[in-house]
């Protein structure tokens, strides 16, 4: 159910934004759109199927803590 909602939501974004960019043949715009859209889609699908994705801030904190670069 949640996966279906994710697919519908992201399909709407593609319809609203990617299709006009393709029509305009704006290569830079398409690249920028995909740069932002792809990680969002991957993260959303992972969450929808139940994969626990750790927060990037917490991952960074762990790494810095291991290096002794935290307060």
């Amino acid at each position: 159910m949640s996966l279906a909602l994710v697919v519908i939501g992201f399909a709407l974004i593609v319809l609203l934004d990617l299709i006009p960019l393709i029509r305009k043949r704006d290569g830079h715009g398409i690249a920028a759109f995909l740069l932002l859209f792809s990680p969002a889609l991957v993260l959303a699908v992972l969450q929808a199927v139940g994969v626990e994705v750790p927060g990037i801030v917490i991952v960074l904190w762990r790494k810095l803590h291991a290096l002794g670069l935290t307060y």
Partner: peptide, 10 residues
Amino acid sequence: TRSFRHLALA
């Protein structure tokens, strides 16, 4: 890119 508004939703 000039297609500023098409990046907002992404």
